[in-house]
Computed example of a mutant assay.
Amino acid sequence: MDTITRAGNDLAYHVTPGQGPGLVFLGGFKSDMEGTKALELERWAIKQGRAFLRLDYSGHGKSGGDFTDGCIGDWFEDAMAVIAAATTGPQVLIGSSMGGWIALLIARDHPDRVAGLVTIAAAPDFTEDGFWTDFTDDRRTEVMEQGQTAVPSDYGEPYVITRRLIEEGRDRLVLRAPLPLPFPVRMVQGTEDASVTTTTALRLLNHVACDDIRLTLVRGADHRFSEKDDLALIRRSVVEVLKRVKP
């Protein structure tokens, strides 16, 4: 494991050298680089001789910082700092859930560093269209006046949602303005995903400007998208993007 420091936090990452364009796995909200999808893709990339990078945002996994201090902009900047330090040239980004949003921010603000994109249950704008939209008036008041609220999670401890996460997220929304993606994009989404619905996937598909984009819906798959067949579909999607990357 390697580290770099950004904004006072040590950011942990693991890079495997190999053929380019390399693959970069961007994990989800409160997840880490030791998850099933990240490790399975890394093993596959090593067999293919393909460069691979996985990382932990600040407040996640082995990186420094407190989770509740972070926001989408922080984690986007964390990802860019690691990508800049550990890779050269355009990369194929693989964004899972919140990582899909971060990948879209990278594609919007640093398109020269993106060769292609694969999203797994991408969750763009979820702070606004998910948490804030679903909050009751009482919970909105709690966030604004007390600075945070705890919401139930299907993955263990409740999520602590902060006022900063909500307010800063509004400066990072990607579904409110044109979003050109001038490279191959493949999206995969489960129909039984309780965290990110097919409505979000279809909204993203219809919103972006991209000449080479496909969305694959998997009936019965949930948000983890980590079953054997799900992982195989992710690998096939990566292969398809790599085949269509412009030289």
Rank of each mutant, 00 (worst) to 15 (best):
G61K: 04
G64E: 05
F76D: 09
P90Y: 10
A85E: 13
G70T: 15
I72H: 12
G73A: 10
V82H: 10
L53G: 04
D56A: 10
G61C: 07
G70N: 13
T87F: 09
G70R: 13
K62Q: 14
D69F: 03
C71Q: 07
L55E: 01
L55T: 03
A81H: 08
A81K: 06
A81T: 14
I83C: 13
A81W: 03
F52T: 03
I72V: 15
T87V: 08
Q91I: 13
F76C: 07
G64W: 01
K62N: 15
G59W: 02
D66I: 07
E77P: 07
G61L: 07
D78K: 03
L55C: 03
D78C: 11
M80P: 08
M98E: 00
L93H: 08
T87L: 07
G70I: 01
G95C: 03
G65W: 00
Q91P: 03
A81S: 15
F76L: 12
V82F: 11
A84R: 14
R54K: 05
V82C: 10
L53M: 05
R54I: 00
Q91D: 13
D78N: 15
D74C: 10
I94P: 04
P90A: 14
A85Y: 10
A85I: 04
V92Y: 04
D56Y: 08
L53V: 09
M98T: 00
A79S: 11
M80I: 12
G64A: 08
G73M: 04
D69E: 15
H60S: 15
A51L: 03
S96N: 04
T88W: 09
G61M: 10
T88H: 14
M98Q: 01
T87E: 12
C71A: 12
G61E: 11
F52M: 09
S97E: 08
W75G: 03
A79V: 02
T87R: 12
T68A: 15
G59D: 07
E77C: 11
P90F: 10
G89T: 07
F67E: 02
A85C: 12
G89K: 09
T87P: 02
L53I: 08
I72P: 10
K62M: 12
L93V: 01
A51H: 00
M80C: 14
E77W: 05
D69N: 11
D56F: 09
H60L: 11
I94G: 06
I94C: 06
F76V: 09
D56P: 09
W75Q: 15
L53H: 06
L53N: 07
G89V: 05
G95H: 02
S96K: 03
S63D: 07
L93D: 00
F67H: 06
L53S: 05
L53W: 06
D69A: 15
F67G: 00
